[in-house]
Design a protein around this nucleic acid. Sequence first.
DNA 1: GCAAAAGTGTTGTCAGTACACCCATGT
DNA 2: ACATGGGTGTACTGACAACACTTTTGC
Lengths: 218, 218
Amino acid sequence: MSVDSIVFGYHDDQLKVLLIKRGAAPFQGQLALPGDLVYPNETIEVAAHRILKDLTGIDEHNVEQTKTYSAVDRHPVARVITTGVYSIIDIAKHDPHASAWAEGVYWTSLEDVPQLAFDHDQILKDAVDILRNKVRKEPIGFELLPEKFTLADLQNLYEALLNVKFDKANFRKRILSAKFLKDLNEFQEGVPHRPARLYSFDSDKYDELRANGFSIQI
Amino acid sequence: MSVDSIVFGYHDDQLKVLLIKRGAAPFQGQLALPGDLVYPNETIEVAAHRILKDLTGIDEHNVEQTKTYSAVDRHPVARVITTGVYSIIDIAKHDPHASAWAEGVYWTSLEDVPQLAFDHDQILKDAVDILRNKVRKEPIGFELLPEKFTLADLQNLYEALLNVKFDKANFRKRILSAKFLKDLNEFQEGVPHRPARLYSFDSDKYDELRANGFSIQI
DNA sequence: GCAAAAGTGTTGTCAGTACACCCATGT
DNA sequence: ACATGGGTGTACTGACAACACTTTTGC
């Protein structure tokens, strides 16, 4: 039993995924998703946490399962069933570094991902689908923005996550009508244009709205 | 590694789930979801298929993963990681019967499910959530209706699956506008009221619509 | 005729889209 | 002044809910 982590990162308005170059057979030297066996005293989620910490030093993050892959011959050496787990992190916060099973670690734009080891192409594809589905229904991704952000920042984030473009006016209306942003009454400074209003994510308000069966569609 | 099957059935306008009474320790005599270990030559899906066939004799069905549960102490005897798998079948088609690990088999209405063995309460709850989410986005459940059915049949099915009530006129408009039903130009016979028009599910049409990025919301 | 369920039409509201326009700042 | 993005108003459309109404059958 193993875990494969799909670590999404956001930087420069781009959605990227963390890949490693395998340091050991099988598929040595080929790119793959970071993954490892689940130890006897770990849950899948704890193992995923450990993997991400080894690679990036990031300790605080949410992980979410995608699917479990059990094809008998998916691993050429032994029977290994693996569960996909994804997380979204802020690339700026930490630099990834190689570790036990990784010769090298790379942030790769989704369009530039080459063929991966094992069935990782499929695992990645499934994860992207699941992520995009989820983003449209719940306000995730706020971990990727600074504490105070502008609506344009948020729009860029969503556009990168979903790979679409939104109309500015309409995006604003939708987000603001959802009422889970706190208007800080502060503004950008030193920008060569009209300074934008700053907001923060109001998680108390969101929890309250959610408890009342509220949902948004983006 | 094991599988636990959440088998949903539909009968008399009611959504039910298949439970077994455990014939062996641990939790002997308690109700549980049917489940078994995944054999070395099986995928999770194949194992789920085998379980359902053992219990109900049903051979043809679709299975779909829910989540994988890996809490270290979820099984009191050994470390067992389990994946939830659900399917929907037509109760009328086959009678369930006890098997290797089942002393008895019962169709139980969702509201009447008692406390279950292991973490099966949680597994069932998650499966119901996932099923309801899915039903709203894709036309599943047609396996549960006879070949030819009325719009009222379909409405009853959806109401049972989702545990809600729909307005008749609006439900019809939505379903018919989706255009994946074939109007058979046939009618009910021998009913003590105006006979209803019969339809069948047009899967060719649905595949075609789906290929063009179409989706419905029910 | 009456009960029962099939099936339709009308109206109001609201969310989402497209698009044009104004505003505030640095250079 | 002007470039650059921030921010807003309006008008159109289409989906959806509510609800009242007509139709067709068996008894």
